[in-house]
């Protein structure tokens, strides 16, 4: 497999001023400025093979967008390097631009006040796509993303989901081999999400695109990627297969129990003499617990509960990626053990 993206020790430090409080602070700031340094991306290294699709996830402020901005060439790193399809993005910005397609979910690359098709036509000229090739591609994208009724509308009249589909097409006009999607499903409803995922899947599997994707919807990565990179505080804390992370964390289960009447978590803990990892009172009549299957077998747990308490319903849940990821973000789970 050939390598498409190679990143080594990529680091970005933002320098912001510390604004002092109040009027006197503001005046003092005019004369003497103090800076705060934020290490948004901290020695990040990874590589991505051609045709691979990787989910890049992390809590708010983890440094995902900053990394993507550097990889698209619009932001210079403080230190470290990256080579994408043989080019250093921020050194050969214009050449690199032809190899990549980008979506920033929170912005649009479409001209706001004019018909979507005008932006597409301009992009055709910008990337020097031949007319016949362009026509064929546009037709393909129109079917894939169901754009036919949207093309003649100005961007400002599109709903978020419609706009995202158009942005998607815009990033594909020049058929680039590498794609960076920063939150492509942000704010979309369930069916729009499915449609965007379908399009991404199509690009990866049928067209062999290399895709780096960030999202806060773990279902996106579960659906699309085999491999994920998890970042926290600018650093990579996990880089590997989703399957592996599930295996590793897979010893824990979660159970939601409904009772006839009030039951407290203390009562349950006493009953299971401290073999739970965690318990939480959801309502007076509902409790959620987490346990390790090595300290208590699910069948024993259920049996004990049914025997001793007025149980109405028990729902057992297996290892769930979004649950694992949330626990990693919250610092309750460590990956390096």
């Amino acid at each position: 497999m050939t390598e498409s993206i190679h990143v080594e020790n990529l680091t970005k430090v933002y320098r912001n001023f510390a604004r002092r409080e109040g009027l006197f602070g503001a005046i003092a700031d005019l004369f003497k400025r103090e800076y705060i340094l934020t290490k948004a991306v901290d020695s990040v290294s990874f590589s991505i093979a051609e045709g691979e699709i990787v989910g890049y996830i992390g809590a708010n402020g983890a440094g995902k967008s900053t990394t993507i901005k550097m990889l698209t060439g619009i932001l210079r790193p403080t230190s470290g390097g990256a080579v994408i399809n043989g080019l250093v993005p921020w050194e050969q910005r214009k050449k690199h631009a032809r190899n990549i397609g980008v979506i920033f979910g929170q912005r649009t690359q479409l001209y706001w006040d004019i018909a979507v098709i005008e932006t597409f036509n301009l992009l055709r000229r910008v990337y020097r796509v031949e007319k016949s090739v362009y026509d064929r591609r546009l037709e393909e994208l129109t079917t894939l993303l169901d754009l036919s009724s949207l093309l003649t509308k100005p961007t400002r009249k599109l709903s978020l989901g419609q706009r995202m589909r158009c942005d998607f097409a815009a990033s594909m006009i020049h058929d680039p081999p590498v794609l960076f999607f920063d939150e492509p499903t942000i704010g979309l409803d369930v069916s729009a999400k499915f449609r965007v995922r379908d399009a991404i899947r199509h690009l990866a599997s049928d067209r062999g695109k290399t895709i780096l994707l960030t999202t806060h919807d773990i279902a996106d990565v579960e659906d699309l990627c085999e491999r994920i990179i998890i970042v926290d505080g600018g650093r990579i804390i996990f880089d590997g297969l989703i399957r592996d992370i599930k295996d590793r964390m897979g010893r824990t289960r979660r159970a939601t129990i409904d009772f006839h009447g009030e039951v407290s978590t203390d009562e349950i803990s006493r009953l299971l003499d401290g073999r739970l990892l965690e318990s939480e009172q959801i309502t007076p009549e509902q409790v959620e617990i987490r346990f390790d299957i090595q300290s208590i077998k699910p069948s024993d747990l259920v049996r004990t509960l049914l025997a001793e308490l007025p149980v109405k319903d028990i729902v057992l849940k297996g290892p769930d990626l979004s649950d694992i990821v949330r626990r990693i973000y919250e610092g309750k789970e460590r990956l390096d053990e």
């Binding site: 901005k69 619009i74 631009a97 032809r98 912005r107 910008v126």
Partner: peptide, 13 residues
């Protein structure tokens, strides 16, 4: 607004 990013990622001066 940061939208300048979208202009700078084009292969144009």
């Amino acid at each position: 607004s940061g939208d300048i990013a979208l202009d700078l990622m084009r292969p144009i001066y």
